[in-house]
Design a protein around this nucleic acid. Sequence first.
DNA 1: CTGTTAGCGCATTCAA
DNA 2: TTGAATGCGCTAACAG
Lengths: 336, 336
Amino acid sequence: MTVTLRDVARAADVSIATASRALAGSSLINHATQKHVVQVAAAIGYRTNTVARALKTRKSRLIGLTVHNLENASFRVLASVVQARMQALGYQVILSISNDDAEQEREILKTLVDHSVDGLIAVPTGSNSAPLLAMEHADIPVICAVRRVAGASLESILAADMEGAYTGTQHLLGLGHRRIGLIVGPSDTTSGKERLAGYTRAMQEAGLPVDPALIHRGRYLPETGVAGGNALLSLAEPPTALFVANHESSVGVLRVISERGLSIPADLSLLFYEDSPWFEWQRPAISVVDSGAADIANLAVDRLMSRLGGVANSGREYRIGSRLVERASCRALPTS
Amino acid sequence: MTVTLRDVARAADVSIATASRALAGSSLINHATQKHVVQVAAAIGYRTNTVARALKTRKSRLIGLTVHNLENASFRVLASVVQARMQALGYQVILSISNDDAEQEREILKTLVDHSVDGLIAVPTGSNSAPLLAMEHADIPVICAVRRVAGASLESILAADMEGAYTGTQHLLGLGHRRIGLIVGPSDTTSGKERLAGYTRAMQEAGLPVDPALIHRGRYLPETGVAGGNALLSLAEPPTALFVANHESSVGVLRVISERGLSIPADLSLLFYEDSPWFEWQRPAISVVDSGAADIANLAVDRLMSRLGGVANSGREYRIGSRLVERASCRALPTS
DNA sequence: CTGTTAGCGCATTCAA
DNA sequence: TTGAATGCGCTAACAG
């Protein structure tokens, strides 16, 4: 039924080895026979069996991609970009979703190894340095994206969160805001920590006090936006600007604003973190600190390809610079 | 380096065949030796090489999943659900994104076959019946989800779009609306056609005229919502309710409403199609006709597993019923 | 430049 | 119930 290399060899009247060389584009082959074999192969509809090739060469042309979920805009962009680029490079991607669960991640890693993926791009949970390092040890390069694994010598492509939050806060400061509310992720996550640090640094450099009442920490959920928004906006002296540095909570904040009948940016300036098509279509369009998910994905692919090409693990951490995207949700405060 | 079946056999002091049987849970094996082998295998860290197994058995335990993109909520849910369930069933999924492009889809299918996937769940572009049928012919079951391929005898799991639009329109009608605007996808797509038909039927059954001016057709894009929203709302006698039966255009409609300063549902009742977390968090929360993406995904997985288990292609089309999710964006019109 | 040969790791047929 | 032997389809020495 399926046409194999043997069939091609027979049809082209060459040995099976020659046929293999011809199709592989080997240099040590007569150009004429090469062309002939390729032609014959196409004629009889030959397609090389990647499974057999993988067994022999120990290269599956499959890579693993694990993300926490597909809802988060960054992860989604990562998945799209990685899939598209790897496919163009001749690789297929096995997608796995970890739900940010260490146990599930462990299972996934095992399975991926079983399927002998050539490499892995992972948004790690952070709790599985051992199996991840074991993969590296087994010569399966792994590139961490968006998140990293503390203490593990793995290449990681991260957003420059501290810088991003710093830039965002400075933007608001530059517009004359002094009381800037911050809604941010939990401090046991790198991004939560770093974004808070960026905010703090900008405030301090501006000679402003860092009022704990203006900072709301919470999990990466819409509910955090509701709680944080309500808390900050109920303050005796509410903030004039709100920096929502926890992407998932953005929608919750929007809801609070709508419920309170606040007008943006007249009543409140609003700055979000991580871009989403929704923010651009919102009226007024919402300014954001874009953490560059697409570029993280691109660099992750570049690094993986480089590793696949034989370059050693640098163990290095790469940071993708953030970009402030000014739209219409922040207004300059009148200088009183 | 890697521990193979041969190592297990040696360590357990049995033949390689016996080891294989033990690990595979074959019935023709002594229970004691079975247990022993399994134990030894675990002890020395054996993991069966899926590539070698695939070459031998012609079953890769890999399935393909192709979607147009990961932005559309339905496709995203499909991807999440299919991934999670197939993984739980011992399969890995190779994700491919077709961008709704027939040419890309053709390439994807070839590659998937090359990797000898055991089956395929596809949101088809609709233009590749031949290669899809060829897969079926090659004993690779394919299940179409959300979209179908006209004229091809492939199992398809679709939303009950005609019924959904009918239900949605009836809901609005029941609230007393008579002038109901419809923004819908292009008529060369099944869902565009069917949703329009559902709307038309409901209107006619209510003895109402179907005013072409109240119907805006357009591509699945936010811009369609802007154009459609503006067109319908600028009418001399604008609709009292808007049924946005083109998911992608929802965000555009929201923008128009915001720009026009319309209050929902006081000025306009709003009903969307296909649910999204955003709609629920919106204030007012937006009522929707939920087309059941998760259930489509679940049934697709069920059907695929059944086919993988040897059941023949029924060529049947399955429809997942729509569900009206009433929230706060539609109001009853006072009976004047 | 080309052909012969030997596995990659596993499942399975056939004998015992 | 077990073992020996075969080959899935391909690549890569090794000879010629």
